[in-house]
Design a protein around this nucleic acid. Structure first.
Lengths: 175, 175
DNA sequence: TGATTCATGTAAGCGGTTACATGATTAT
DNA sequence: ATAATCATGTAACCGCTTACATGAATCA
């Protein structure tokens, strides 16, 4: 149930509509926890019904601006401090590694080199973000930079690993 | 639809029952693609109906041993070589980083240090696996070692990042 | 006036988790 | 005997994705 907490976290900074939240998901959270429009609107309704949010204002085009309640803040705090983060991680890319023996050496190497390039591309994209965003000293900038650094280290690690793995495979094929 | 390909990949090595597959998921694939018992049995039925698997033999206790068909092998090969790996990665741990500003400095640091320790623990567990498994020169050993190395690098990276992030947070709080 | 942006919602379907339910065979 | 292991299946539920559906307000 991380989506609801992601939304509570965003709304803890300032009130927003579903539409606003979607934009914020796309720009900041998309690499950690993507969400779709229908999901966001659905969850807004549930959170309001549960008393964790309330409709603070209504605007043109049926716009509903949601604000977090004290109960919502308490739930966010509880989630952040009392519950251990879920650790279930699925990686389709890693899964494939287990089946590389069903490919020819050429195909397997091609896959790993492709992985290296995908990681490198992702890394470059993150560097681009780092350059374009003007980072302030505000809380969101600080947190965003921490998350970005995680992404940079992760993509770098993935590229290095993939190149290493390609070499390992070649070595073991020689034997 | 990675589960079906994970199952095809396992069955490409040798025929197995649902029960066998479950054990293999638990030992080798659990870190890349966990699966539950009900999922495995359900998918076996679907794959057999689709002609990618067939019941090769029946044993005691209603045991059904499934074998991959040529069609199944073709599908596995197609998946491995023609389709790009899905890249959707959700990380609850990273998501929380975006909301660290809603915690006190003490709480936030505690969270990051906890992350570092969780990563270190996971790292140690993988080292334990490395020590206990007797790695041969067979295909599964080679692939397994590649995947294990990925895990080792990943957990090391996470620990380092978390310690770095905790320091960064302290620095920015001083200002 | 016509395109773009803002804005909200519903419905079908899929993959995954948890829990329930049953029973045969083998090892102690 | 009885406990552990082997073995298969079903049902309810939840979160997420995709697609559909509608329309008001603003900008060029």
């Amino acid at each position: 149930m991380s989506l609801r907490h992601a939304m509570l976290g965003l709304l803890a900074d300032q009130p927003a509509s579903g539409y606003d939240l979607m934009k914020r998901f796309e720009t900041s959270l998309s690499n950690a926890w993507p969400a779709t429009q229908s999901q966001v609107y659905g969850e807004l309704g549930k959170l309001a019904k549960a008393g964790l949010l309330e409709v603070a204002a209504e605007g043109p085009r049926g716009r509903k601006e949601y604000a977090i309640t004290d109960e919502g803040r308490a739930e966010l705090h509880h989630w952040l401090t009392e519950t251990p983060p879920g650790t279930v991680r699925r990686s389709e890319a890693l899964l494939r590694v287990f089946f590389l023996n069903h490919l020819t050496p050429v195909e397997a190497t091609a896959y790993l080199m492709g992985e290296a390039e995908r990681a490198a591309g992702h890394h470059k994209a993150l560097e681009e973000v780092e350059r374009k965003v003007d980072w302030g000293d505000d809380a969101l900038s600080v947190n965003g930079r921490l998350a970005l650094e995680y992404g940079l280290r992760f993509t770098a690690m993935r590229e290095e690993w993939a190149r290493w793995a390609a070499e390992e495979l070649m070595k073991s094929r020689e034997r």
